[in-house]
Amino acid sequence: MSMIPYAKQSISEQDIEAVAKVLRSDFITQGPVVVQFEQAIAEYCGADYTIAVSHGTAALHLACLALDVGEGDSVWTSPNSFVASANCALYCGAKIDFIDIDPQTYNISMTQLKDKLKLAEQNNTLPKVLIPVHFSGQSCDMQAIKSLSQQYGFSIIEDAAHALGGEYQKTKIGSCHYSDISIMSFHPAKMITSGEGGMLLTNRQDLADSIEQLRSHGITRNPEQMKGASHGSWYYQQLDLGFNYRITDIQAALGLSQLQRLDDFVSQRRALAKHYNEKLQGLALTIPWQHPDTQSSWHLYVICLQLEHLNVGRKQIFDLLRQAGVGVHVHYIPIHTQPFYQEKGFKEGDFPASEAYYATALTLPLFAEMSVEQLDFIVDNLTKILHVNDGL
Rank of each mutant, 00 (worst) to 15 (best):
S54W: 07
N203K: 13
G391N: 14
S136V: 10
H217W: 10
V330E: 00
H134E: 03
H61Y: 05
H134F: 14
W298D: 07
H387F: 07
A368C: 08
K384P: 00
I108W: 10
F82A: 15
I211F: 06
R270P: 07
G349R: 03
D48Q: 15
I131W: 09
L272R: 11
A189H: 13
K274T: 10
L321E: 00
A47C: 14
K172I: 00
E278S: 11
P103W: 06
H134K: 05
K172E: 01
S149M: 05
A359P: 00
I173S: 02
V69F: 11
A86S: 10
Q9A: 15
I335F: 04
V312H: 03
D159Y: 04
P188W: 08
A63Y: 03
V35C: 05
C176N: 11
V19S: 01
L241Q: 14
V266I: 14
I11C: 04
T77H: 11
E308T: 06
Y235L: 02
G31Q: 09
R322I: 08
Q104P: 02
D293A: 08
L366V: 06
N311H: 12
Q138A: 10
G255L: 07
I157A: 02
I16M: 14
N123Y: 08
S257H: 10
K172M: 13
F154Y: 13
T363Y: 05
I250S: 11
Q213P: 03
V372I: 12
F351P: 07
E373T: 13
D240I: 01
D100E: 03
Y358E: 09
Q205I: 11
S185H: 07
T105P: 04
K128A: 00
Y357S: 08
M191R: 12
Q374E: 15
G325M: 04
I378R: 13
S210M: 12
R215E: 02
G153N: 06
P5A: 00
D380P: 05
L364P: 05
H291V: 00
A86W: 10
I16Q: 15
D100A: 03
A47I: 02
Q295P: 01
W298I: 07
Q14D: 08
Y91C: 09
I287M: 07
I247F: 06
